[in-house]
Nucleic acid binder design. Structure first.
Lengths: 229, 229, 229, 229
DNA sequence: TATGAATGAGTATTCATTCAT
DNA sequence: TATGAATGAATACTCATTCAT
């Protein structure tokens, strides 16, 4: 821990410019015009997952983007706002993806299976988002989570609906308890989350093939939906 | 986020006397005489989960213990070593607990069921340990993970053995793939981890009863073991 | 001290739309069309006394005026120039006022009395000016004070003349020293200044009625002119 | 304004050490052992009057003292606490001095005269204290002024008592108003304050001899006490 | 005439760690 | 065994100013 921070300039995002160290007085704007905001988001997303919230520093972001620290404040009120924007973006992205996938599949089972795989793929393909979205301790972030969590919940509810449809189709005993659906949905999500976070956190046994594991784990999850809760 | 840390010590003006600097000598010595090392571990464990790794400060630990900052360095080489010690302790504790529980149950199903529930209970009862043990990014900690992960793996293997026994007993198709057991074990652990981390990170839907959820989710997991992978 | 400045703009996460940066376009244009220079002076005057020189920020001025920061630079070379303009304005205003009052009174005593009261009133009614004019440390401001201090001196000389006339009329011993007049004038001004700054800096004992204090203090000052120096 | 800050090392306080620029890894403690706190106070006192509260920076103080910035925080909780300590010290010093002087004089007139002169002398000899004590805008400092101002008020009350004694002895009309004493005391203080601050703020006409002015102004003040309010 | 984007230097404060005692 | 003093590097954030448009 206290990781020897990566060499200062190693993390650049724009690979094409290496401005001469002789103080580049606005000499190298070079960035895709007008898109500093986006560049900042990109850099922050990457750094955030590499460093974690507390270790993410505005300085690092600026260095990665190639702009001054204060410029970041032109687009984001502060570190918190920056991170919130990233979370927001992540939830929205996954929401779009989930609908895409669900729309593209026929039948409850195919739909749920596809969405589960997509979830894991999304998490693995966007570990930056994933960690931001789900791996924060909620009391480590303050003040504006309300609206953010509405978004997260909507995603969960959509997943729950798919699971319920599949369970019904698969003839699962309809569960006496009135909250059976909610429990099942959350258990399913917990499983998917466990899968992703195990891999993302690099805790998967090296002897295991990742694709093989994902495949098996998703089947494990579907079996849970059929038989469980 | 960026919770404004409480002012380190009261910002009062010493009103009556000019000469004496009179900084507040630690208020609560409270330490169990002679066992500073243990006291430090105790304090750190609690603070770590309250604050997270990065926000955990040696000063805070020292203050909580009632000793000087530098005294901590007599027992631990640094912040990292302190945290490593805690992880070690956590893996060992869970190992003991798992064996206890497994020994106390009869039959593969009862054994696995009991151990799964115990896992969740352990995580919820010791969120400090749990987070330290499993919710760190492995590349967020450097240098000494080797022996730690051997310990973690041993725990996982033991869980896998129980799962395999149950799957066999339940007549699950023996899985063509040679790593079927490993996949199943990991999927099971991922599910349990998902359950615990969902709750520990305070992301469980408020409308859901926690006990009800845990019960349903464990049944979900067992169904996964039977039918999945 | 170090009052925590209000967060520059609301730290909210824009919740509905991802793409548009949508920073809050200034809420209150409010500017009397066409006279940006005056508007800036007005805003600066008010803010200056509320915040002090160092805490006065061009951003705040711009926000108060409803223009962009850089627009201020069209009319003033910088923060310093802005403040100098305010001082200038203040000295001129007091000069006009003093003459008005002096012209409106009959007899040396009435004249001096009226002017003294007017001075205090002026200071209390225009604390912004007052502080700018007299309560800055002269070595805290650089570069352009020459012509400003000529203006200030002229005001002091005029006051001195009135005091001399009154002293003569009141039969004060004519003071052997050749600079007696100057000393008396300055002492008088110092007293008036003390009165104003005590009140303006909010250091007047709460148990004292302000009007009563001003009245008494001016009588105190006149007595000084008669008997002192 | 925006004064081009004095050359970084020009303001050193300890004149005897000029440590080699080659990073003095604890090589040059040199300072009167154990007295960093005092050294910090000394440096801060000087800088404060040179720079003003807002411009006083912990960095500058550290540089002047020759210690690291963080070392200051070993003795003062922050900038505010540092300044409060200075104010405190100033009030206490003047209190001691005033009593000394009063005790050393015979008769109400001699006593008041001596104290007035001592006040001005004190202000001129300790401009740092003086400005700290009296020239702050009270709303520019927040949070802990209560106990400080009790000290200031006590000083004022003591001065008022001397003035009352002298007024009585001098046969001044005893003033119908019940608060006549308080008004007179405050007016006297305002005058003395005006005298000091005029000189301290470097606003005294260059053509005037300072000693001559002080002498005349104090006589002016005594005349005010006799005849005024 | 007016602006938005950008910046470099600056701010107070916190932290892990070292070292002489 | 224990500590207090000290420090260098880090942090988020603010500000006056410039410049191309």
């Amino acid at each position: 821990m206290t990781r020897p921070r990566p060499a200062p300039y190693a993390t650049r995002v724009d690979v094409d410019t290496l401005p001469p160290p002789a103080r580049p007085r606005r000499a190298a704007p070079k960035r895709a015009e007008g898109d500093l905001r986006t560049a900042v988001l990109d850099a922050a997303r990457q750094l955030l997952v590499r460093e974690g919230y507390r270790d993410l520093s505005m300085r690092d972001v600026a260095r990665a983007v190639g702009c001054s620290v204060s410029s970041i404040y032109l687009y984001f009120a502060g570190k918190d706002a920056l991170v919130h924007a990233l979370m927001d973006e992540g939830f929205a992205r996954w929401h779009r993806r989930m609908q895409e996938v669900a729309d593209g599949a026929d039948g409850a089972e195919a739909r749920l299976d596809a969405v589960c795989r997509a979830y894991v793929e999304f998490g693995l393909a966007n570990p930056e988002f994933y960690e931001i979205m789900y791996m924060f301790h909620s009391d480590r972030m303050a003040r504006y989570p309300k609206e953010l969590f509405r978004r997260a919940r909507r995603n969960l509810d959509d997943l729950g609906a798919l699971a319920a449809a599949y369970a019904a189709e698969a003839g699962a005993a309809p569960g006496a308890a009135p909250d059976a659906d909610a429990v099942r949905a959350t258990a399913l999500w917990a499983t998917l989350h466990g899968i992703v976070s195990t891999i993302v956190a690099d805790r998967l046994d090296r002897r295991l093939d990742r694709a093989r594991f994902v495949d098996g784990a998703v089947r494990f999850a579907l079996a849970g939906v059929r038989g469980g809760a």
